[in-house]
């Protein structure tokens, strides 16, 4: 009898689960392994939770930063084009032109470590070692005059550093400060008169609303045989190009970014685009001395930019695998030759 009663109860509870959606575990999913957790559980908190063992100095940070960060954020964290400023801006937050940098605005250093580690360098995320991240973080502190040049940051002294703006954040108070004021709903004679006080047309910053016609990029003079483009290689090369596209654009609508656009790169004299203003002197000189981009010169340059052309502003480690370089060049060639 007891046995039957239990059975009845089980049946009853099964019916209950079925009807109320889920109130007991369904037994779905599987346990995560230690290595899986290690690979993905990378977040860092202000109290230091999550920080790995490691260290890095301002001195080593300068080199790592210059190589990985300076092409967008500037040598001194000043920000190039519209890329974020990382340093300075102190005493500007209550001005008409607040400059929000890590030094002037960010409340916690852990956020810097976490973000650099998870998302930087842009387009090559999670490529830095833990010690690289400590070094870069130390160097950013130095750029903000928050530590001396002999400083070394580690998981041990991390919690002793606080950022100047930490105490100047407050929790959402709309409910008490605003929402009670915003309840009136006047219907008639709400004000004596109305005048236009501001007009968007004065600023004239709205994008042109004409449908952009395919702007014709100057006709490409194809220097090399392109009939033999290898589609698989082009496809592989498109993937390799992801390493480049944070700085370089290619295709019909390509404009200059941190680096010059790559349309018509084949047969181009190095450093010769007049409307690109950020060439190094050395690349212009190389062009004047006869450096023309072709498969051979491009491949050598991309393999190790700073070795091939000392003084180039292209802060890029290079693509060591020749197969990757070949694919990349095939992709660039395919865009150049497709008439875009």
């Amino acid at each position: 009898m007891l046995k039957y009663l239990n059975l009845a109860l089980i049946q009853f509870s099964l019916i209950l689960f079925a009807h109320t959606g889920q109130s007991e575990p369904l037994g779905l999913g599987r346990a995560a392994t230690e290595n899986e957790l290690k690979a993905w559980d990378i977040d860092i908190r202000p109290d230091g939770a999550g920080l790995p063992t490691g260290s890095g100095s301002v001195l080593s940070g300068e080199e790592t930063y210059t190589e990985n960060c300076a092409s967008c954020h500037g040598d001194f964290g000043e920000g190039i084009d519209r890329w974020p400023e990382l340093a300075g801006g102190f005493d500007t937050l209550d001005s008409e032109d607040p400059v929000k940098t890590i030094g002037s605005y960010w409340p916690y250093l852990s956020t810097v470590w976490d973000y650099v580690h998870r998302a930087m360098p842009f387009g090559n995320a999670q490529s830095l070692t833990d010690d690289d991240v400590y070094s870069i973080t130390a160097y950013i502190l130095y750029l903000n005059d928050l530590v001396e040049e002999d400083f070394e940051l580690s998981n041990k002294n991390f919690s002793s550093i606080s950022l100047p703006n930490e105490d100047n954040f407050f929790h959402d108070n709309r409910n008490t400060l605003e929402n009670k004021q915003f309840v009136k709903r006047c219907m008639q004679n709400c004000k004596p008169d109305v005048k236009i006080t501001k007009r968007a047309v004065v600023l004239d910053v709205t994008p042109d609303t004409e449908i952009e016609t395919e702007k014709s990029v100057p006709k490409v003079e194809i220097q090399e045989e392109t009939a033999s483009l290898n589609p698989q290689l082009v496809k592989d090369g498109e993937k390799v190009f992801k390493k480049c596209k944070a700085c370089h654009k290619i295709g019909a609508k390509a404009k200059h970014g941190a680096g010059p656009h790559l349309n018509n790169i084949y047969g181009r004299i190095a450093g010769s685009l007049n409307d690109y203003k950020k060439y190094s002197k050395n690349i212009i000189n190389a062009g004047n001395n006869g450096l023309i981009w072709d498969s051979e010169t491009l491949s050598s340059f991309i393999e190790n930019p700073k070795k091939y052309l000392a003084g180039t502003k292209m802060n890029f480690k290079g693509i060591k695998k020749s197969a990757d370089r070949n694919a990349l060049l095939e992709y660039i060639k395919s865009i150049a030759s497709s008439g875009n």
Binding site: D43, I44, R45, P46, K100, I102, Y105, W106, P107, Y108, S110, T111, D114, Y115, A119, F169
Partner: peptide, 8 residues
């Protein structure tokens, strides 16, 4: 966690 998108 006070990550980038909820601080800066």
């Amino acid at each position: 966690w006070h990550h980038r998108e909820e601080t800066s």
